[in-house]
Amino acid sequence: MLNLVIIILLSIISLSAAIYAVRAKKLVNAVVASGVISLMASIVFLVLGAPDVAMTEASIGSGLTTVVFLYALKQIKSKGEKDDD
């Protein structure tokens, strides 16, 4: 029962983070929101009984992917690109 409540809560958070990531005005906010989706997904994996996948998703999905995105943003910013949609 507790698992069900946790999963519903995490699903709501990750879905709203996904919609925010698509609609956000600033690119940095969108990148961080997609990192939040991965973090919530890793907790869901832990609840579903897959600790290996949870470790991988938490370290790769929400750690390294966000860092790679931010480096790419930094390099594009240094070229002087305006980020309107």
């Binding site: 600790p51 290996d52 949870a54 470790m55 991988t56 370290s59 790769i60 750690g63 390294l64 860092v67």
Partner: peptide, 25 residues
């Protein structure tokens, strides 16, 4: 520790390698 104990506890080569890469980060 994570990748050496990969056959006993959760974890393994991929997770341990990424943790090492985060140290370099």
């Amino acid at each position: 520790y994570i990748f050496v104990h990969g056959h006993l506890t959760p974890g393994g080569g991929f997770q341990g390698g990424v943790v090492i890469a985060s140290a370099f980060l």
